[in-house]
Design a protein around this nucleic acid. Structure first.
Length: 522
RNA sequence: GGUCCGUUCAUCUAAGGGUUAGGAUUCAAGAUUUUCAUUCUUGCCAUAGGGGUUCGAAUCCCCUACGGACUACCA
């Protein structure tokens, strides 16, 4: 392989449903690799299976990448749709394989002409039957050198008969003629040398007459060649078909420009066995999709975006699943990820997905976010509750409670008392801190606080502390009781932060109300 | 079943023949604080098993076990 080749990678999902987080990670690694090497990152839609096409899936893929900040350099029109007309930005359009349909047949037939592939006329019923009888006998049916001689193929038919069948029949396919016994030596950027003998491989279908569409293998190799892809970075599930792809490049005579391959480890279930699936999310209560997805049948799957994750946190979490920079840094911006991403540092083994760590990442990002930015996110929540407050006030509230939150959605529960006075008081706290003599102390200290000028945190704090000390009262007892009056419970930020922000008037109202309500408590 | 890939604390991972096997998450304890949280400190916890090679192995080789992927006219 030439070393001076321009780096060009592609993310090539199939629009058969919502992109799941494993797919997002594959896209991310491709994107990081391309950016790090100043290369191109191409988005290509592999919709060669008309039967599995799901409406909306393509738009979902595009929107997911956009949300994550993973932007293709090629394959999207300026309006953000899959590019279907060529221009300077998208010279290889269209990028949807269904629209490249007419391209593939000639390549498949070239292979037939050169003896690397052949026409097969077996019906699906025949094959199903063959498979069934083989399995009944405890054998695995495998369509390769061992059976192709007995089947209806162009390999064992006179040429004019083949021509006739090609004309009259519209159910034939073109199959790759897998060599009988050859060690295919391959190289994977993550796993190193891999060798497979072709004996165990089958004669894969490359092209189908019925819908005139290629299968994945042909379309993939042809398009990667036509789009001048330098590195194929994809999931580990593709490793078993790597020998076929090597052989295909060889058969086309393209070995010299064959891309390098890297197979990424899979994402596994948080518990139990197997790879991460949609069901795990439902069962364990976390999203497996970046965005909310409503299936055509109406079934709803939750998404990271709708669950309140920041895209940066989500991407950061994903990046560290199966890769690490070798340092102890864990929080990365996209630019930092780009700067230190190395394919060689991708882990070989599957990574169990940990929803707890995902939350931790979000918390880190939330804590680091400026109060003003958080206020902008919190304001809509307040508006929905018919609460009007200034940006400055909301920002101050966010600043006080953000260390306790994982999501913006947590803010209301943590800070409601900044906006509405507590109507009732936490009984456990009342029992613990409201003693017969408490009301008297509260009345006095509330009076002192109300008359403190200026009404700032520092001033209030020193005044209150001095008063408590000089009256020989327990700091905990008075403070917690006072907090109870203002907040309604015993949790929250520094009490004088709260009081100062609330202001004298509200402070006065709340202590008055509390003293009135709690006067009967003994 | 067959083929291929993999295996370090519960989880994500570091240590490319020489370290008391390091960090992070979770969990537990303590300190701080008026409370909760944060923060800080500490603790618990791992090289799957067995053989080699070597002065020396988590690291190289072999076997076993376990896990995963693939085994469609799906991708």
């Amino acid at each position: 392989m030439k070393t001076d080749r321009k780096i060009r990678v592609r993310f090539a999902p199939s629009p058969t449903g919502p992109l799941h987080i494993g797919g997002v990670r594959t896209a991310l690694f491709n994107y990081l690799f391309a950016r790090r090497h100043g290369g191109d990152f191409i988005l290509r839609i592999e919709d060669t299976d008309a039967g599995r096409f799901v409406p909306g899936a393509e738009a979902y893929i595009v929107e997911s990448l956009k949300w994550c900040g993973i932007s293709p350099t090629e394959g999207l029109s300026p309006e953000g749709h899959i590019a279907d007309t060529a221009d300077a930005q998208n010279p290889h359009a269209p990028y949807r394989q269904s629209q490249r349909k007419s391209l593939y047949r000639q390549y498949a037939e070239q292979l037939v002409a050169n003896g690397y592939a052949y026409y097969a006329f077996d019906t699906e019923e025949t094959l199903g039957q063959l498979r069934k009888t083989a399995e009944a006998g405890g054998q695995q049916f495998i369509y390769n050198y061992s059976v192709r001689g007995q089947l209806q193929t162009s390999l064992n038919m006179p040429a004019d008969r083949v021509r006739q069948r090609l004309q009259s029949d519209d159910h034939w396919v073109i199959r790759f003629k897998m060599p009988e016994n050859r060690d295919v030596r391959m190289h994977d950027l993550i796993r190193g040398a891999v060798t497979v003998n072709t004996r165990t491989l089958d004669d894969k279908v490359l092209w189908k007459r019925i819908d005139e569409l290629p299968t994945y293998h042909l379309a993939n190799v042809v398009d990667d060649r036509l789009m001048d892809i330098s590195h194929v970075i994809r999931g580990e599930e593709w490793l078993p078909s790597l020998p076929l792809h090597y052989l295909l490049y060889e058969a086309f005579g393209w070995s010299d420009s064959q891309p390098a391959f890297a197979h990424l480890p899979l994402l596994l279930k948080p518990d139990g066995k197997g790879k991460l699936s949609k069901r795990d999310g439902d069962r364990l209560g976390f999203p497996v999709f970046p965005l909310r997805w409503v299936a055509p049948g109406g079934e709803v799957s939750r998404g990271y975006r709708e669950d309140g994750y920041f895209p940066q946190a989500f991407v950061n979490m994903l990046a560290l699943l199966g890769w690490n920079p070798g340092t102890e840094q864990e929080i990365f911006t996209m630019d930092e990820l780009t700067a230190c991403f190395r394919l060689e540092r991708v882990i070989k083994s599957g990574a169990r997905f940990n929803p707890e760590k995902a939350k931790w990442f979000n918390q880190q990002y939330l804590k680091a976010m400026p109060d003003e930015a958080l206020a902008q996110l919190f304001q809509p929540v307040l508006k929905a509750k018919n609460i009007t407050a200034s940006d400055a006030y909301v920002a101050a509230v966010c600043g006080l409670v953000k260390e306790r939150a994982v999501f913006v959605e947590d803010f209301w529960e943590l800070s409601s008392y900044f906006f509405t006075a507590p109507a009732n008081f936490d009984e456990k706290v009342v029992r613990k801190y409201w003693k017969p003599e408490t009301a008297d102390s509260i009345r006095q200290i509330a009076d002192l606080i109300s008359h403190t000028v200026p009404f700032t945190k520092e001033k209030l704090e020193t005044a209150a502390h001095e008063w408590i000390l000089s009256h020989n009262l327990g700091m905990g007892a008075v403070m917690n009781a006072l907090r109870l009056c203002i907040v309604g419970t015993s949790k929250g930020p520094g009490l004088f932060d709260i009081i100062a922000l609330l202001g004298n008037e509200k402070f006065h109202e709340r202590t008055g109300y509390a003293l009135d309500l709690l006067k009967s408590v003994k």
